[in-house]
Design a protein around this nucleic acid. Structure first.
Length: 665
RNA sequence: GCCGCCUUAGCUCAGUCGGUCAGAGCGGCUCACUCGUAAUGAGCAGGUCCGGGGUUCGACUCCCCGAGGCGGCUCCA
């Protein structure tokens, strides 16, 4: 046999050359380390059984690496599909890719899976893992694949889409790439028989015994190839890890994340309520509204400083307005329409503020000297969402955006965008939130001409490139119907992404509403409008922020900033004096003089996430001091009442944490 | 909108394979204790078992319809 020469590299270190005989596999080259479950050959992930070629650079893929976990999860998806088809012979296969923290597989089945089915499937999977089936890769022609998969209509459809899918849909391309089709056989080592097989690009684990830990999570319906027009398949989600410890750790993290759920915290802290009579439309309770008002007060200060002028406009408009704006044709399904049988025309609750801003712009003749004209509008909006899409505060039907419409000349676009990005930076830094950008381009349903759209998209692209150095996503077709947009995304406690702020470029609405300004040559011009929100919807922002902080708001935002706990009834009088002093200094106080033990009342304040607690007894009453306990800390500080009031009040005003003297006992 | 699951006291949840089983803890109220930094003790009150139909001698329990919620899909701030 002839010799070939390969390079082997471990841990990003120096590559070392080695001579091996032809036909040597990646596994042979990399040695018998059990934590190596695949190979990267010249940068491409391969099975360990892949024969290396002369000149290849071969690197190990560890089970615990990101690629390794994806392979474990992908192989686990196969095991699940095999179990499902063994238990439900009529089940037909959809696709089964690895995803963040796990995998799923879609099936066309006679009836949806019940929770008990998942238990049975999981048991069968454990049995399959026990048998140590081998994953064997085999290249097949299109014809051969069609023949072997004749009973799998969805796989046949994928074969027909081969090549076209790779660029369009990552999930589909897991099954078929652009090149030769491959089938993975699961071989039972006991008898050498093929126990199961699936059309798949791979790579896969050497055998099922390399799946150390997995768990099925839930089942749900999902449209075939992600389109509502297609039939629904039944999807089972699972998770898989390189060790039992990692699985346990992941499940623990999930449980912890659930405790941060803003819906639970909102109830515990009495922030808001959803009533069955108003789905998706929050009742703001006193404490929740206080937080919301604090957010808005901060927002107003910052925006007035930056030249924004706030307006408020009608909640209900005649449908004529929505016809002019295009909402009637492009957004009607999401609008609450008030239809009086005997009266023409209809009215609708506003789902967006933009048309009203156009009307305000048109109230005067405008000069280029008036631009940029920044009109903000935080009115409540109503959007009639499809049922099944609501989600606590994160997806509501009544919302308030920190909205603004900025009328500018075309050559002011770039600078105005920079100003908006600066505001976003300032806000998100204060709240310590992570975010990323996403560009949304022209959707299927749009107004205006393609050329204008393309130039607007190009403008946004160049701004984004300059701002982020290319660190952003592009969502084709993700724009608003009137223009392309840059969205700002954040994640909830479970890592699910949500669209928060958005900055949208609009050449269409000003034209539709006949907005004009006079330029420096006395010519009438149509302004460009930027629609922008920083918080996004206040409801969603607060929901995300609750999950981010687990309800432990910073001092300036907290609904109750100081909780006062007198040690015994005879000190209640002094406690009232302290409460009054704080109240007059515009600090939000709660006095807990209930007939409960001190420990109990401290505990309640702690659970209510009150930032500061004052315990008042004989010592304090006598010396005119307060004994301060910070949320989450056990160390106490005793300080003069007047000093404490000043410190807290100024910290609240400055929206910073309060500074207390070092521990004085 | 689609699929599945869920809905019992203010909250969190037991429970009945259809028959005095409507329960617990927390919370609330009352009383006692008068308390120094994450749960003092005792007693009392509190439920249209989501709503509407149906099956049955009998329905919180089974069936159908509806509402709301949860998890996804689709759609979006």
């Amino acid at each position: 046999m002839s010799e070939i020469r390969v390079q082997i590299r471990h841990d990003e270190g120096e590559a070392r050359a080695r001579n091996v005989t032809e036909g040597t596999t990646a596994a042979d080259v990399l040695g018998g380390d059990r934590s190596v479950i695949a190979a990267r050959v010249d940068g491409t992930l391969r099975d360990l059984s892949h024969p290396v070629q002369d000149g290849n650079l071969v690197e190990p893929v560890l089970a615990s690496s990101e690629d390794g976990l994806a392979i474990i999860r992908h192989s686990c998806a196969h095991v699940m599909a095999q179990a499902v088809q063994e238990l439900f012979p009529s089940a037909r296969l959809g696709i089964g890719p690895p995803i963040k923290d796990g995998f799923y597989y879609d099936f066309d089945v006679d009836r949806p899976f019940a929770p008990e089915d998942l238990v049975r499937i999981e048991e069968r999977m454990r049995a399959i893992v026990q048998t140590r089936q081998l994953f064997a890769r085999r290249e097949v022609s299109d014809e051969q694949a069609r023949e072997e998969l004749a009973t799998e209509p969805y796989k046949l459809e994928l074969i027909g889409l081969k090549g076209a899918t790779a660029s369009h849909d990552d999930m589909m391309s897991v099954e078929v790439g652009a090149d030769t089709l491959t089938i993975y056989d699961n071989i039972d080592p006991a008898n050498g028989q093929v126990a199961w097989k699936d059309l798949c690009r791979g790579p896969h684990l050497p055998s099922t015994r390399h799946i150390p830990a997995f768990k099925l999570m839930r089942s749900a319906a999902a449209y075939w190839r992600g389109s509502e027009k297609n039939p629904q398949l039944q999807r089972i989600y699972g998770t898989a890890w390189e060790s039992k410890g990692s699985l346990a750790n992941y499940l623990h993290l999930l449980a912890e994340a659930e405790k941060r759920d803003h819906r639970k915290i909102g109830k515990d802290l009495e922030l808001f309520h959803f009533d069955p009579t108003a789905p998706g439309m929050p009742y703001w309770l006193p404490k929740g509204l206080r937080v919301l008002n604090n957010l808005l007060a901060f927002w107003r200060e910052e925006h007035e400083e930056r030249g924004y002028q706030e307006i408020s406009t009608p909640l209900v408009n005649n449908k004529r307005l929505w016809e002019i704006s295009g909402h009637w044709d492009h957004y009607r399904d999401n609008m609450f329409i008030i239809d009086n049988d005997d009266e023409e025309p209809s009215y609708a609750l506003k789902p967006m503020n933009c048309p009203s801003a156009m009307i305000v712009f048109n109230l005067k003749t405008r000069s280029y000297r008036d631009l940029p004209l920044r009109l903000s509008d935080c009115d409540p909006l109503h959007r009639n969402e499809r049922s099944g899409t609501l989600h606590g505060l994160l997806r509501v039907q009544k919302l308030q955006q920190d909205d603004a419409h900025i009328f500018i000349t075309p050559d002011q676009i770039h600078e105005e965008f920079q100003r908006i990005f600066d505001i976003a930076d300032r806000f998100y830094k204060i709240f310590d939130l992570d975010y990323k950008f996403r560009l949304g381009t022209r959707p299927e349903s749009y107004i205006g001409d393609a050329e204008t759209w393309e130039s607007a998209e190009a403008t946004l692209l160049s701004i984004l490139d300059a701002r982020t150095g290319g660190d952003y996503e592009v969502e084709n077709g993700g724009g608003a119907f009137y223009g392309p947009k840059i969205d700002i995304l954040m994640s909830d406690a479970l890592g699910r992404p949500w669209q928060m702020g958005t900055i949208q470029l609009d050449f269409q609405l000003p034209r539709r509403f006949g907005c004009v300004y006079t330029d420096e040559h006395g010519q009438r011009q149509t302004p460009v409008v930027i629609h922008r929100v920083i918080y996004g919807a206040l409801e969603r922002f607060l929901g995300i922020y609750i999950e981010h902080t687990a309800g432990a708001f910073p001092l300036w935002l907290a609904p109750v900033q100081v909780s006062i706990i007198p040690v015994a009834p005879e000190y209640v009088e002094y406690a009232h004096k302290v409460a009054d002093a704080l109240h007059h200094a515009k600090v939000s106080v709660e006095l807990d003089a209930r007939n409960e033990t001190l420990g109990m009342r401290v505990r309640v304040a702690q659970q209510q996430k009150v930032p500061l607690m004052l315990v008042l007894g004989a010592r304090e009453a006598q010396s005119g001091t307060v004994s301060v306990r910070r949320r989450g800390e056990r160390t106490l500080t005793t300080m003069d009442l007047g000093l404490f009031v000043d410190r807290v009040a100024s910290a609240v005003r400055a929206r910073v944490d309060v500074e207390l003297p070092p521990d004085a006992g």
